[in-house]
Nucleic acid binder design. Sequence first.
DNA 1: GTCTATAAGGTGATAGAC
DNA 2: GTCTATCACCTTATAGAC
Lengths: 205, 205
Amino acid sequence: MNQVNKRTRIQERNRAAILEAALEVFSQAGFRGATLDQIAKTAGLSKPNLLYYYASKEAIHTELLSGLMDNWLEPLEALKADGDPIEEIIAYVLRKLDMARSLPRESRLFANEIVQGAPRIIGEITGPLKTLVDEKASVINGWIEEGKIAQINPYHLIFSIWATTQHYADFDVQIRAILPTNGNTRFAEAANFLEHMYCAALKPS
Amino acid sequence: MNQVNKRTRIQERNRAAILEAALEVFSQAGFRGATLDQIAKTAGLSKPNLLYYYASKEAIHTELLSGLMDNWLEPLEALKADGDPIEEIIAYVLRKLDMARSLPRESRLFANEIVQGAPRIIGEITGPLKTLVDEKASVINGWIEEGKIAQINPYHLIFSIWATTQHYADFDVQIRAILPTNGNTRFAEAANFLEHMYCAALKPS
DNA sequence: GTCTATAAGGTGATAGAC
DNA sequence: GTCTATCACCTTATAGAC
């Protein structure tokens, strides 16, 4: 290993540590609420050293958000027109719920951004996200016309899936405070409930 | 009108203007993201004058949140055990959706607070809110035992109602960006969709 | 690449005149 | 009750030594 590779690997490790720390802090406090001090401390670096790797607070946040959008679109992309309609939609619901379970910080990062008007990510929404949703709404409308599922509004179906699944990440504090069970059964319970609800709602009449 | 009453009315008017401005700013930017400058300017007061009425930024935020919690619980309180189960739940869904339409800033104020860990409102959640939810979950469980509705988990039913309705306020920017319709029909569409979904999900098997 | 020191500007809150 | 002026602190970002 030569000096250049060594430096590169240190750089990659530090950049990764910064993004990990930034995800932790931004998702918990929002863009304005987060401070470089917190991120630097969480990453185990000094503040100037952090700014050696990223030019600004904004740059870190932008990199996080853009890096996540691809991941965020994946579950919906996997919805295939040639599968069984209800199975495809239920599988999408469960994939989204599993993302809320395994990537709650990513979900809260988006939630913070969108609740506050999506100033730094509106382009991704009106662009790639809208394109994908329009495409999948067409698929769902096709299923409706074939009589394979009930006549529902595909856009509002998708919104309700986003809402019900991301809720378990975004409003985690509230859910833990209210649920009478103390353990980690809430995602299994949620999966049961959501599967029942969407099966019932989609069954053609 | 004597001098005392006149001063009192001016005070009431200014305090109301401050709370209105604070709702506007806090709901859009979160606690940390909001500044007293913005709130004062929106309220049409100087910053020191604003702090003449409220001791601190925190005091304004606390007053807003505690004043709103009562309003927030009302729709669920109106769910009555002696009504028709499915009609009662659907009416609750539609009341919540109407609150998301008419009070979006209040919804976003809560969303901002809870996404960031509810540091200033956790007591209201573990206290009055949990008490109310436990009570209504019992009512719903009673309906299930009587075979009047399907066997669903009442807590997750309530979570899903919160999620699907508040989503139209909290993620308003995203919804507007994605929906193909330009007008204000989204709440009517949502009402149709949600009524269909919850009717189907609750119908006893 | 990493550090200490510090600049530059924003922000919550107070002092004191009117 | 309301204002101007200002303090004290925080936060982003940079300078420059090592």
